[in-house]
């Protein structure tokens, strides 16, 4: 190794190290302007939830405590994990006809992978994805949810 090579090795090495230090030095001086982390529980009020975010399956009810679920079990069939279980019953309409309706819409959040296939499968848009994401609980049984509210019934005109 010639002396000249040796010295140019040292010089280029030192230069590359200084270039790296320049970058981190710049970041250090800029730290108050740019932050890549979030202060999670503090920024809850200002957080933006994208409307398509898939957090959990919910069944929207309107003011009259009515939903759009006909109990067709398309979602139950579409689910790859057996997350949804629908128990149906037969309501008697004023005209005296027996009509199929849901008794309980059971949703196992602990099995759900938020794949959105049930929402896609639903013909009446009765269920949708909510933007919640803090699902941790101390007891796993709390994750088994009943989606239809107490005393709710199917909205008029939904077939």
């Amino acid at each position: 190794m010639g002396l000249r090579n040796y010295l140019s090795d040292v010089a280029s090495g030192v230069k590359s190290l200084l270039t790296g230090m320049k970058v981190t030095g710049r970041l250090f001086l800029r730290h108050h302007k740019e932050k890549i982390t979030q202060q999670y529980p503090d920024n809850k009020d200002t957080m933006v939830y994208p409307e398509r975010f898939r957090g959990e399956v919910v069944m929207p009810h309107d003011d009259n405590n009515e939903h759009a679920c006909t109990g067709c079990t398309a979602c139950e069939l579409a689910c790859p994990n057996g997350t949804i279980k629908i128990i149906t019953k037969f309501d008697v309409t004023p005209e005296g006809k027996r009509k199929k309706a849901i008794d309980t819409f059971i949703y196992h959040l602990q099995l759900c992978t938020m794949c959105n296939l049930c929402i896609e499968a639903c013909p009446t848009d009765a269920i949708k994805m909510a933007q919640t994401f803090e699902h941790s609980v101390f007891d796993r049984s709390q994750l088994i949810k009943k989606l239809n509210q107490e005393g709710s019934k199917i909205r008029e005109g939904v077939e």
Binding site: T24, L27, F28, H31, K35, I36, T37, Q39
Partner: peptide
């Protein structure tokens, strides 16, 4: 603090 500022984080707060 130095590490967090170089990594554009807040550090302990």
């Amino acid at each position: 603090k130095v590490s967090s500022w170089m990594q554009l984080r807040l550090g302990p707060n």
